[in-house]
Amino acid sequence: MTHIIPKPREELPELEPILQMVEASMGFLPTSMMTMAHWPELTQAFGGLGATILHSGELDAGLKQMIAFAVSNAAGCRYCQAHTANSAQKNNVSEEKIKAVFEFEKSDLFSDQEKAALSVAVHAGMVPNAVEAEHMSELLAHFSEKQAVEVVAVISLFGFLNRWNDTMATTLENSPKSFAKDQLAAHGWVAGKHE
């Protein structure tokens, strides 16, 4: 159960445009946004940053969600694992490929380009950060500098979200929770404190 009760939507008329945008994009309103709403300026700023990182740029939206899933796995955030795996599927990543993210290095389902991005994500999600020069060199062998910035932006966005949701013990919504229980449980996923 979340440590801070989410703000009721009806108390946030100034946030309604951004809440509608997030709800339309995800299919539900994330509990994390409603706990952020105790500080409305944070919700506004985060919503804009998240929209820029996830919905603009050159990288495929499915790849962005796989990167977010990989970094969230490394960081151990069950809330974000459920969200990003579910969002990857909504962005045309097959369930087989989502499950294979756990062993992407050995899987033929991933291109060398995807493996380079996922490797940076996994190493960036470790504490302390384990990204080395060779990880970035491999990333830049497959992506332009702008695209590499996009990869790191996704990783960084979820660095914030991983810390936020694990610290707050954010309650997981039904849709991503159901998806994760069905698709990720075989890899050890449990809702834990996000129940």
Rank of each mutant, 00 (worst) to 15 (best):
I155F: 06
F28D: 05
S72F: 12
E134W: 02
N91S: 09
S32E: 07
E150A: 01
A74W: 10
F179L: 03
I67H: 07
M66N: 04
W39L: 14
E132M: 06
I98E: 01
W39R: 15
A185K: 13
F104N: 14
E114K: 09
V131R: 08
I53D: 06
F158V: 08
K193E: 02
T52K: 07
M136A: 00
V151D: 06
N174V: 10
E114R: 08
T171L: 13
I67C: 05
P128V: 03
A45G: 01
T35M: 12
F160P: 08
C77F: 01
G57H: 01
M36N: 10
L59Q: 06
E11A: 13
G192E: 08
N91M: 11
E105Q: 15
M36V: 04
F158K: 12
L139T: 02
T31G: 10
N73I: 05
L63N: 10
Q65A: 11
V190P: 04
F28K: 02
G27K: 15
T171M: 11
E105S: 07
E173H: 04
V131S: 08
G50Q: 03
G125N: 11
S119W: 02
L29G: 12
K97N: 03
M36K: 11
H55C: 14
H123L: 10
G47M: 11
Q183K: 13
M26Y: 13
F143C: 03
Q113E: 08
P128I: 00
A37S: 04
L63W: 06
Q65G: 02
L161T: 12
A185N: 07
S156G: 09
A70V: 03
A24K: 13
G76N: 11
T167W: 11
F102Y: 14
G47T: 10
G76V: 07
E132A: 06
M36Y: 05
S32P: 03
C77V: 00
Q65S: 07
E173P: 00
